[in-house]
Structure formats: C-alpha cells, structure tokens
Simulated scan of single mutants.
Amino acid sequence: MMTRSTFHPDFALLFLNPREAATIDAIVGHIIPSEEGSPGAREAGVTEYIDRALSGFMRDLQPVYREGLAEFEAFAVETAGATYLDLDGEQQLAVIAELDELSGARPDAFLGQFYRIVREHTVQGFFGDPAYGGNRDVVGWKLVGFPGAQWGYTPEQMHPGVDSTSIPILTVKDLYSRIGSMK
C-alpha cells in the first residue's frame, strides 16, 4: 500500500511545480497501482509524460490542470481533513474513490471532468510510446503483450492466436536508430 508521497522526479519538470507533480504522481499511482512483479503508473513515468505533454502538445490544458489540482486539494481537505499529500495511502485511495463516484454521478462537475482527464492521461502515459515520456521500460506494452512500433509483420505473425510476446518489442526510437544504421 502507498504511503505519503516522497516524489523526487528524475526528470526536469517543464510545467508542473514540484508539489503539483507529487500530487499527480500520487493520483496516477492509485489509478494504475503497482503490484508485485507488475510496475504501475509511477514506475512507468506517467507523471513525466503528463508534465511533458502539458508543456507541449497539451499546453491548452494548462489552466485545467492548475485549477483542477487546486480544486482537488480543496476536495481532499473537505473530504479527508488534509491535503492529498498529507494523507496516508488508505486515505488517498478513499479520496480517489469518492472522486471517482462524483465523476460518475455528476459528469458535468469540473472536478469530475478533471479527474477523467487525469485518468485518460494516465492511460496514455502508461501505454504510449516511451518517446513521449511515459511507458518507461515499455512496462505497459509488456503488460498487454504489445510488440510496439513495427515496420510490419510476417504472414505468420498475422494469424489469429499468434503469441505477440514472441515478437521483439520496438519503440519509435528503435526504429529511427535502425534507419540511421542503414546508411
């Protein structure tokens, strides 16, 4: 079970401040938790993905994240009596569960919308190509048996029932390095 956040990024923050990044890291850790032998969103670098995306192609969502994180903290104080990072893992999980319920019961509420956005970005960061900052060590792809970026598949690999885990996992970076080595 998770404990109070001790988030220390091993990457440069581009949009989020350290407290916001720690809060996002704790949230994504509850959305896709790690289990023994199975890394979760934290280990996959989802917070780095979200931070990079907010400084780049998702920059239009910067105000949504700023306001959403502020409302999220107020929600944690209101429902659990402390800011999210000051809660223990069980209390954080209870806040997330209550927020998830609110998200379904009042889909038009801003905080519920914000939570759905963070949840969607968590999935993107967990399963996207590592070039975008998440899916560190291709943990998301390994979890579902996805071979990643491929130039193509052999006829045998296209048959139903093929074990896709036997196909070497390649990232976009791997493909580009192969292009460079072809010269």
Rank of each mutant, 00 (worst) to 15 (best):
F11M: 11
T23A: 09
D163P: 08
S164M: 14
H8Y: 12
M2W: 03
V138I: 03
I50W: 04
A109V: 10
G68I: 05
E67L: 15
E78N: 15
T154L: 15
T83N: 15
G29Y: 02
R66S: 11
T165Q: 14
G148P: 02
L102K: 14
T23P: 05
Q150G: 06
I167N: 07
P33T: 04
F11G: 10
V144F: 11
L14N: 12
P18Y: 06
R4V: 08
L85G: 09
M182G: 09
Y49K: 07
T47W: 02
P160Q: 10
H159G: 02
Q157M: 15
P9D: 12
I167Q: 07
I24W: 01
V123K: 11
A80Y: 14
P18I: 10
L16D: 01
A22G: 10
T171L: 02
E43W: 00
M1E: 07
V172D: 05
R19G: 00
G104Q: 11
S166R: 14
Y153N: 02
A109I: 04
G128Q: 11
T79W: 04
S103D: 09
V77Y: 05
A82H: 15
D88V: 09
A131T: 03
E71G: 01
S164Q: 13
Y153H: 12
L143R: 12
E98S: 12
E71P: 01
F127P: 01
L13T: 09
V139M: 04
P33Q: 06
G104T: 04
W151I: 06
P168D: 10
A109C: 08
T47D: 06
Y49D: 07
A26F: 02
W151D: 11
P39D: 00
F114D: 00
D129M: 00
E101R: 15
D174A: 08
L170E: 10
I169V: 15
I32N: 01
H121W: 09
S5G: 12
Y84K: 11
V139R: 07
K142S: 13
G40H: 07
P155Q: 13
H30S: 10
G148R: 04
D137Y: 05
T3P: 02
S166W: 02
V46I: 03
L85Q: 09
Y49M: 05
Y176S: 00
G37R: 04
A70S: 14
G37V: 06
G37P: 04
L85E: 09
P160N: 09
P63H: 11
L85H: 08
A131W: 04
D174Y: 06
A22R: 01
V46E: 03
L61W: 08
E71K: 15
A21Q: 04
G180N: 11
